[in-house]
Simulated scan of single mutants.
Amino acid sequence: MNQVADNPYVAPEAELEVQHEAGDLSVFPRFTTWAVFGLTIITLGIYAVYWMYSRTRHLNSITEDRISNGFVGAAVGVYIASGVSSIMMGLTDASALSGTMVLIDGLLGLASWILMLVWAFKFRNRLNRVTDSRGKPTWAGPILTFFFSVFYLSYKVNQHLDIRASR
Score class of each variant (00 low, 15 high):
Leu110Gln: 06
Phe71Thr: 03
Asn125Gln: 07
Pro137Phe: 08
Leu97Ser: 04
Ser98Phe: 14
Asn60Trp: 05
Ser85Gln: 03
Met52Asn: 08
Met89Leu: 13
Ser61Tyr: 01
Lys136Glu: 15
Phe123Arg: 02
Gly83Asp: 06
Leu103Ala: 15
His20Gln: 06
Asp24Gly: 00
Ile80Leu: 15
Glu17Ser: 03
Gly106Asn: 08
Ala14Gln: 09
Gly106Ser: 06
Ala11Leu: 12
Ile67Cys: 02
Met116Leu: 15
Ser26Gln: 09
Ala111Glu: 03
Leu39Asp: 00
Pro8Ser: 10
Leu97Pro: 03
Asn128Gly: 02
Ala120Met: 09
Gln19Lys: 15
Pro137Val: 08
Asn7Tyr: 05
Tyr47Ala: 04
Gly99His: 06
Arg134Val: 15
Gly77Gln: 09
Leu127Ser: 00
Arg126Phe: 02
Ser133Lys: 01
Leu108Pro: 04
Gly109Asn: 11
Leu107Met: 13
Asp24Ile: 00
Ser98Arg: 06
Glu64Lys: 05
Ile114His: 05
Leu107Asn: 01
Leu59Phe: 01
Gly38Ser: 13
Asn128Asp: 09
Ser54His: 07
Ser61Gln: 05
Ile41Phe: 13
Ile104Tyr: 05
Met89Glu: 10
Val118Thr: 04
Gly106Leu: 09
Ala48Pro: 02
Asp65Trp: 07
Ser86Trp: 11
Phe37Arg: 09
Lys122Trp: 09
Arg129Asp: 11
Ala22Ile: 08
Asp6Thr: 09
Leu108Glu: 03
Gln19Val: 15
Pro29Phe: 06
Thr43Arg: 13
Phe28Glu: 00
Ala74Phe: 13
Thr33Asp: 08
Asp132Lys: 02
Ser112Arg: 09
Met88Leu: 15
Tyr53His: 15
Leu59Cys: 01
Arg124Lys: 11
Thr100Gly: 13
Phe123Met: 08
Ile87Ala: 12
Ile42Cys: 06
Gly23Glu: 07
Ile104Phe: 10
Ile80Ser: 01
Thr33Leu: 08
Asn125Cys: 01
Asp93Gln: 14
Val49Gly: 02
Phe28Gly: 01
Gly106Cys: 04
Leu59Ala: 01
Ile42Asn: 08
Arg55Pro: 00
Phe121Met: 04
Arg55Lys: 14
Asp6Glu: 14
Ala5Phe: 14
Ile87Met: 14
Arg126Asp: 00
Gly106Gln: 07
Ser54Ile: 10
Tyr50Gly: 02
Thr138Gln: 10
Arg124Ser: 01
Ala94Asn: 08
Gly106Met: 07
Met88His: 07
Leu108Ile: 08
Trp113Gln: 11
Thr40Cys: 11
Arg129His: 14
Met89Gly: 01
Arg129Glu: 12
Thr40Met: 12
Leu91Cys: 11
Asn60Ser: 03
Pro12Lys: 10
Ala120Asp: 11
Ile62Leu: 02
Leu91Thr: 13
Met116Trp: 10
Val102Gly: 05
Gly135Leu: 09
Ala94Gln: 11
Ile87Gly: 02
Met52Gly: 02
Glu17Leu: 05
Val18Lys: 10
Pro142Trp: 14
Ala5Ile: 15
Ala81Ile: 07
Phe31Met: 09
Leu39Tyr: 12
Leu107Tyr: 04
Pro12Glu: 14
Tyr53Gly: 02
Ala120Thr: 06
Ala96Ser: 15
Thr40Glu: 15
Val78Arg: 05
Ile46Ala: 13
Ala22Tyr: 07
Val49Arg: 05
Leu110Ala: 09
Ile67Glu: 00
Leu59His: 00
Ala94Met: 10
Ala5Glu: 14
Val130Gly: 00
Ala5Ser: 14
Asp24Phe: 00
Ala48Ser: 14
